[in-house]
């Protein structure tokens, strides 16, 4: 997995490529902990696989962002990854956008 942390239009954007699983999710958490923006977008367009550890990591990132009065959106996930959010009802918890561009205007 690769995580690119970017600043875009006042947002902290995390562009994730590859798999978010029990081995790689600590790396995403570490990248997230370095930022302090109140507006966060996690771009999941290039994520090919996510497990329950990955879902839990995104939940943790959402909780921390909200605790600081901020907002976090998820963008661009594939149908399969999105289906896991729907099955676990996490789609009710997160703001999910079809693309990063859409997230950057609506989060």
């Amino acid at each position: 997995m690769e995580v690119k942390a970017l600043e875009e239009n006042g947002f902290s954007v995390f562009q994730v490529t590859g798999e978010i699983n029990i081995s790689t999710s600590p790396e995403l958490r570490k990248a997230f902990e370095k930022q302090s923006s109140k507006k966060v977008v996690v771009d999941l367009e290039k994520v090919t696989y996510i497990d329950s550890s990955g879902l839990a990591t995104l939940v943790e990132m959402l909780k921390k962002t909200k605790a600081q009065g901020g907002s976090l959106g998820l963008a661009g996930m594939t149908d399969k990854v999105k289906s896991l959010f729907e099955i676990t009802k996490l789609d009710k918890l997160f703001s999910i956008y079809s693309s990063r561009a859409q997230a950057l205007t609506q989060v």
Partner: peptide
């Protein structure tokens, strides 16, 4: 339970 860390596997 949505914000809990475990139980999804």
């Amino acid at each position: 339970n949505l914000l809990k860390q475990s139980g999804r596997g």
